[in-house]
């Protein structure tokens, strides 16, 4: 068995494997496939609750992943944000010093979530500039509110 605590290095190696098969395009195709097929829970929550659906979705996943984060929801301003102080996934990859993470490992988050949220009328702003240090931010805005 591959433990769920070993999934992140397995995921990183999958991205490398796919890139060997078909280049970066193939990796992005896979991310889009995941977004289309495995994020129905996020899609459903946002359809039902609007921006609060983001809060509900990430309240579950970020706690189970033991992330170090600040999450804010301001429904009056139409803004939801996650400030990731230390990403458990990228952090784990960095801690496995004998392994080389997939070079654009963090790119999957932006593709996965943007692809769900933008068609629902939400604007997504990802800052991955410090992702090498396992830090990033993700802001979702509902322009109909603000």
């Amino acid at each position: 068995m591959i433990s769920c605590t070993e999934f992140i290095p397995a995921y990183s190696e999958l991205f490398k494997f796919l890139e060997k098969q078909g280049g970066k395009e193939e990796v992005v195709r896979y991310w889009e496939y995941i977004s289309d097929n495995f994020l129905d829970n996020l899609r459903g929550l946002v359809e039902e609750h609007g921006l609060r659906g983001c809060w509900l979705y990430w309240s579950h996943t970020l706690n189970e992943e033991a992330a170090d984060f600040t999450m804010e929801l301001d429904e009056e301003a139409g803004e939801f944000s996650i400030i990731m102080h230390y990403c458990p996934s990228k952090g784990r990859l960095n801690e496995l010093e004998y392994m080389e993470p997939y070079e654009d490992y963090c790119g999957h988050c932006d593709v996965l979530y943007r692809r769900v949220l933008e068609p629902l009328g939400l604007e997504c702003i990802a800052d991955l500039s410090e992702s090498d240090e396992a830090r990033c931010s993700f802001v979702v805005r509902d322009s109909d509110v603000s």
């Binding site: 769920c4 605590t5 999934f7 992140i8 809060w55 309240s59 996943t61 970020l62 706690n63 189970e64 992943e65 033991a66 992330a67 170090d68 984060f69 600040t70 999450m71 804010e72 929801l73 301001d74 009056e76 301003a77 230390y86 458990p88």
Partner: peptide, 18 residues
């Protein structure tokens, strides 16, 4: 505005949906 602040030590790392 609602705010949730968590540190890694606040939770056990076990995301079985992986």
């Amino acid at each position: 505005k609602e705010v949730m602040r968590r540190e890694a030590a606040d939770n056990v790392y076990l995301h079985k949906d992986f």
